[in-house]
Amino acid sequence: MAVDVEKILRPVDNDFPPFPPKYMTLSNGDDLVIRQIGREEVPDVLKYVEPLLHVERDFYDIVAARVYSELLAYYRYRIQDEYVLVAQVNGELVAVVNGRFVNKDVGMSLHTLGLRRGLRIGAHAFATKMEYHIDVCGQKEVLIVAESPIGFRRWMIEYKLEKRFEVPHELGGCPSWALTKDLFDRARGTLVIGRRPVPEKAMQKAMEAILPPTDPPRKPIHPMAAARALYDQTGTAVMAQGWALEGRK
């Protein structure tokens, strides 16, 4: 008798309510729309995450690599109870956040990846993810870790997260921190904002297509490159020697 291995490998998702889209106005006046995507839209997101694998700055490389694998696992049915939210400005992808449900009461925050820096876009996307766990799905707490110092400041410090160090997080087994409903309630109106329903035009634009990020994070160009080419940073005056050899004063 033939065995359908795929049925064995593929986890069965539990029922959780869908995330109702929301929007907010950014400091530059643009409206940020945050919505949930299904598997069919994952390939569009993957192609914009992939270039960040090579950005050695603020841990973008490791976060992008992990997000890529998590999205792929979601797309190929190799992770249980995962969801993906995208943040868009005029259709442009500016952030991706994802997580999963450990059980009815506990959530596991996976990643927050900003594809445009500044404007608190990543912070808004993270807050929305927490709203999904606590308000929409009625969970009691969400387990969180940060890979970058920026994430640590944004989550652990701004939300005053509680330690759950006895619980290893799914990301590398690192000690977990937790956002409880009580902590979330305290952040309402300050860190957690946004409006519903999303205006029809903005929602339509977001649903039309996931457009590429126009100003994604890039590996910084060495601002001293020209200087380094001319002199040795250790302090030996190679530059002056060069000029002397050229006969310049």
Binding site: M24, T25, L26, N28, G29, G118, R120, R195
Partner: peptide, 21 residues
């Protein structure tokens, strides 16, 4: 800081107090 801002975004919108605390 090469980031455009608008008066709406930092002062008038419902989200202004979070954008511009």
């Amino acid at each position: 800081v090469r980031e455009p801002i608008t008066i709406e975004g930092i002062l008038d919108s419902p989200e202004a107090s979070t954008n511009n605390p």
